[in-house]
Amino acid sequence: MRRPLLMLVPTLKAAALAAVLAPVLALAPAALGSGARAAEGHDVIHIPDTRFSFDGIFGTFDRASAQRGFQVYKEVCSACHSMRQLSYRHLTGIGLNPAQIAALASQFQVQDGPNDNGEMFERPARPSDHFRRPFANDAAARAANNGALPPDLSVMVKAREGGADYLHALLVGYEEPPPGITVMEGMHYNKYFPGHQIAMAPPLNTEGQVTYADGTKATVDQMATDVATFLAWAAEPELEQRRAMGVRMIIFLTILGGLAYAVKRKVWADLH
């Protein structure tokens, strides 16, 4: 009859351990989170939550949405924003096949060289080439954009508090400034941008701005969701593999933990 009693002991120990671990684990992120929130100034902006296909532990990227998002990037964003970490070959990740990628890449002219005469030249891109950059360098980008540098979008979802939700909110968050607020010359009012004044003019402004091949209605909200999905994939192309591996890993470790605990109890049985 002492068994049930003894079985409580490790439970209690574990509880004690958890009691100590919990504040350590809980405090750290709380401290970090609050720090990041403070970065936005005292006026705390609430970012609305968007339903994305990749939300949650088992979420995956909606390939059709990501492909539409790439189309939005290609036709709208890429005029100013580079994605220097990506190559055309990476697009297999949103479901394009190698032939589609080769055809797509060849639409772009990229610089290569020097040739035998020591000159740089343009040639059609290949799948192994990086995405074509809209500007030769940062100075050129600033010069063309009223002094503001359009940031690279490769890891934008990881580089902003709020991630894809924030990007979606930003893209649909343009509105008339509230009374009493004067927007500076060349700036635009956006209710989700920290400080509310953003140099980027509303990039997605009319329904049907792009024509989706799959017939999806290109509302501003739809385009914003699609491009946020594409950018989320671009920032974390390993996400699906990572989560799948994580699930297997945790199942494996749980079984191993159960076995190890059983052996531990057996070994210690003659002491208790």
Binding site: L256, L259, A260, K266, V267, A269, D270
Partner: peptide
């Protein structure tokens, strides 16, 4: 563990199996 007064005869067998399983895992 193999002590006859241990009170559970299958003890060593079970522990060996468990050890083997945990080891192979």
């Amino acid at each position: 563990g193999a002590h006859p007064h241990g009170g559970h005869e299958e003890g060593p067998v079970r522990r060996d199996f468990l050890k083997l399983a945990a080891g192979s895992f």
